[in-house]
Design a protein around this nucleic acid. Structure first.
Lengths: 149, 149
DNA sequence: TAAATATAGTTGACAAAAGCAACTGTATTT
DNA sequence: AAATACAGTTGCTTTTGTCAACTATATTTA
């Protein structure tokens, strides 16, 4: 029965919301908010530079909100802007060396956190876990339009 | 290699964050915030009443923040409070009839939303999806302390 | 090609969401 | 009975996010 499946999916979503929430708490200790970390992740993932527009679409942020966060990044020397020669309205954004270093710290902390969490599982369990995750993604992305890393 | 597994888990987490974020957008149209909806879900799930303390622990909310949201619920006649006879500091909280009705609306909208989303999948795919979700939960809860519905 | 329209990003003003600490009243411990 | 702990409330603040108007550039259309 489909109703039953929906109940299970919603239950999983509630459950996984709390899992993600728990993992995201690490940003409380850092000098970056979760959203800032996501922006840095995208910038790091696009070393050739990306526009504010692209970040907005990827992360579904308000452009005014993002604009201010990028200003704050600039003040902190975490990013560099380079105006596009072809479209002077837009700017290519890059992590600076400092920004890359800060991102690495965040990233390492995140890996460390998950490493500790996974320590209580067997290798077989971890393999199964990632297998199920990949499978969910494959199913959902079959119909979805959105693209991800 | 475990590093590789961690990368995949983190990738899934980023992906699933956006899935959940998309589903949660439905609350933008409603008169309830996501957090309010979660509180109502818990209240609905505990028809014998539950204390603010219990909600705080389940949803990891600040008690002051919750206190104000409950006040707003009371003003809107969505909940009823009954002081505990055994511990006059605490109150048992219930959805009122109106609160139940409002929760039902939210719930139905959520079911409807997922029904539409699942419409593009085959029954087999949906079965696999829920199977993988259950499997993830089973693995993660093996070591976890947190309990969920 | 000039006018109209669209787009990238910025800014100001504001609102919603969340966090923190002090406080009240009740319960529990010493 | 004094000290401590706890449930919930309140005042105050910060963080996060939203909206609309605006500037400068680009694109479309008449």
């Amino acid at each position: 029965m489909i109703e039953d499946k929906i109940i299970r999916i919603r239950s999983f979503n509630r459950y996984y919301t709390s899992v993600i929430g728990l993992l995201d708490k690490q940003y409380l200790n850092s000098e970056f908010s979760l959203t800032e970390a996501r922006i840095m992740y995208e910038l790091n993932h696009h070393p050739d530079g990306m526009t504010a527009k692209a970040i907005i679409e990827l992360l579904d942020l308000d452009k005014g909100y993002l604009s201010r966060m990028l200003q704050s990044f600039e003040k902190r020397k975490l990013i560099e802007k380079r105006q596009s020669a072809y479209d002077k309205r837009s700017f290519y954004l890059h992590l600076s060396q400092k920004g890359s270093a800060e991102f690495s710290k965040l990233n390492n902390a995140s890996v460390q956190q998950l490493t500790e969490l996974l320590a209580s599982f067997t290798e077989k369990e971890v393999n199964e876990l990632t297998g199920h995750m990949d499978a969910i993604r494959n199913i959902l992305e079959k119909s979805a339009t959105k693209k991800h890393d």
